[in-house]
């Protein structure tokens, strides 16, 4: 076990006047772990994600992120330049709508290659080679590399976004409802892919989802949120098979079994 968590969050709070987006959220994320944050609409799970990924400014809270060189930074207090750099290299955000996370005006290969070009890759052949490798990893046919993303299906767009995000081998990946809006069979395929990538690449991830089945498949641990607060946390199968909190019990029992 490593001595220091990859990411520690304490007291994360976001208020909108009297309303609470999230309240006093805290957790540790260890290297190689996938943390699922589950809850219904309004639970605050997306607020937590936005606060950590830089889209929202939290009202209070502190974090400790273990960087590649061993130093620890509070990502909430980083200057914007450093945070943007981190977001391009050591982190990734897989957005719910893949069009928000892709450049629709350039080819698939350019989308995948952009981040490595941004950190200095200067050999066209090698960049293209890496892009082809990643397309293969996310099961997009190699011959689509020069196609514009507008010609891709929803599932393929999401997989392209994942390839674009992972090309710099980020150590921490945020995923916002990664299977949202996709057909069930497409979801299944995407989840398989994510499971495989997490295992093969040793990714650490925070996955926000309302879908317990997705959480069970992807996450090692769960945080259950409601009304902005964490009501229960623990090992995924334990929280889903032996829920302790009344709300968790309600959530689990509400899931339809086909």
């Amino acid at each position: 076990m490593t001595a220091h968590a990859l990411l520690t969050v304490r007291g994360l709070t976001k208020r909108y006047g009297d309303r609470v987006g999230c309240l006093d959220v805290g957790f540790d994320l260890w290297s190689g772990e996938v943390l699922g944050v589950v809850g219904e609409s309004g639970s605050g799970k997306t607020t937590v994600l936005h606060c950590l990924s830089g889209r929202l400014e939290p009202t209070a809270g502190s974090t400790a992120f273990l960087q590649r060189d061993g130093s620890v930074v509070d990502i909430l207090r980083l200057p914007e330049a450093a945070r943007r750099r981190l977001a391009r290299t050591d982190w990734a955000l897989v957005q719910q709508n893949p069009r928000d996370g892709l450049r629709m005006a350039v080819s698939a290969g350019a989308n995948v290659g952009e981040r490595i070009m941004a950190v200095g890759a200067r050999h066209y052949g090698q960049i293209r080679g890496q892009a082809l490798d990643w397309l293969t990893q996310v099961e997009i046919p190699r011959e689509r590399i020069d196609d514009l993303p507008g010609t891709f299906s929803g599932g393929m767009l999401q997989r392209l976004q994942i390839a674009r995000c992972l090309v710099t081998r980020p150590r921490l990946v945020f995923m916002d409802e990664p299977t949202g809006g996709l057909d069930v069979s497409v979801q299944a395929r995407l989840l398989d892919l994510l499971r495989g990538l997490v295992a093969d690449l040793g990714l650490s991830a925070i996955v926000v989802t309302h879908d317990l089945a997705v959480a069970r498949l992807l996450a090692h641990r769960l945080l259950v949120m409601r009304g902005g607060e964490i009501v229960e946390s623990g090992l995924t199968d334990q929280v889903l098979d032996d829920p302790q909190h009344p709300y968790t019990q309600l959530l689990v029992s509400s899931v339809l079994q086909p």
Partner: peptide, 8 residues
């Protein structure tokens, strides 16, 4: 299940 950590 408790031994396995599945039940609390």
């Amino acid at each position: 299940r408790a031994i396995y950590g599945n039940y609390k």
